[in-house]
């Protein structure tokens, strides 16, 4: 089953055409990763899917439902989006920020079940000690984890993440990837933009490459294909075997 199916998607900014007749589908209950060079339109594609940009042409369907006919309310249980890092102006506490993730469901006031959910999610992400801390005084990594918690508060079927490992130290990068893999096993569909192929290949199931306005995949997107990776980044990668695991490392030379 496909969680997201996109066909003929075109999008331009006033000065630049970013997506050209883009075709792609993402599998349900998998951890998919979108790779590609900077400025290639990955964030734009995610913003379109999440409903932040509307003036696109083409077809997008979420679990078979036409994206254009979905209201915000219909979309909330289907898809949640982690935008690239955004600083809060006000000194909200971590709890306040997490609770905002429930707005689409709770409307005008916080429900008791929302508070219980905050407890659960803080425990799951090991951030219970940060509950009353002010969000803009936390480190970049902690803020990122809180924002992912906010996304989980929404409990959407699809988690769409724009560079979630940004700002995280190496421990938290692996910690987060482990979590995302776990979520994909627990019934979430996780789709993430990443800039680190090593990390991506270590944890994710399926791989997509955005290049020159099109999405490229191997014949089966869920089988790692080093040649494609090398072609997209125009550099060589090596596979290293260690303790029965395969790691893909950038080698640095041009192909």
């Amino acid at each position: 089953m496909q969680a997201i199916e996109i066909s003929n998607l075109e999008f331009s900014y006033p000065d630049k055409k970013v997506l050209k007749k883009l075709e792609v589908s993402f599998f349900e209950n998998k951890f998919s990763v979108l790779l590609g060079i900077n400025g290639g339109g990955k964030s734009t594609l995610f913003k379109i899917i999440a409903g932040l940009l509307n003036n696109y042409s083409g077809n997008i369907s979420l679990f078979g439902k036409d994206h254009k006919t979905l209201t915000y309310k219909d979309r909330a249980p289907l898809i949640g989006f982690l935008p690239q890092f955004n600083q809060s102006v006000f000194s909200f506490t971590v709890e306040d920020v997490l609770l905002t993730g429930r707005t689409a469901f709770s409307g005008f006031s916080i429900k008791t079940s929302d508070r219980e959910m905050v407890e659960e999610i803080m425990k799951d992400l090991s951030i219970t000690h940060l509950r009353d801390k002010t969000i803009n005084l936390l480190s970049g990594g902690e803020q990122q984890i809180v924002m992912i918690g906010r996304l989980l508060m929404q409990k959407p079927k699809i988690l769409l993440l724009d560079e979630p490992t940004n700002h995280l130290d190496v421990y938290y990068q692996h910690y987060l990837m482990e979590k995302l893999k776990k979520y994909s096993k627990e019934g979430f569909t996780v789709i993430s933009i990443m800039h680190n192929p090593t990390l991506a290949f270590q944890y994710a199931d399926c791989f997509y490459y955005l290049h020159d306005g099109h999405v490229h995949t191997a014949a089966d997107p869920c089988i790692p294909d080093i040649d494609l990776l090398e072609a997209v980044y125009n550099m060589s990668f090596v596979q290293v075997e260690k303790n029965g695991k395969t790691f893909i490392l950038p080698f640095g030379e041009q192909v």
Partner: peptide, 23 residues
Amino acid sequence: FVYRWRLNLLALGDDAARAVGIN
């Protein structure tokens, strides 16, 4: 007063609101 809690979400910005399914 009725909108007081929603104001928290609005104060995080338009994208943060749209990201969790609120116009």
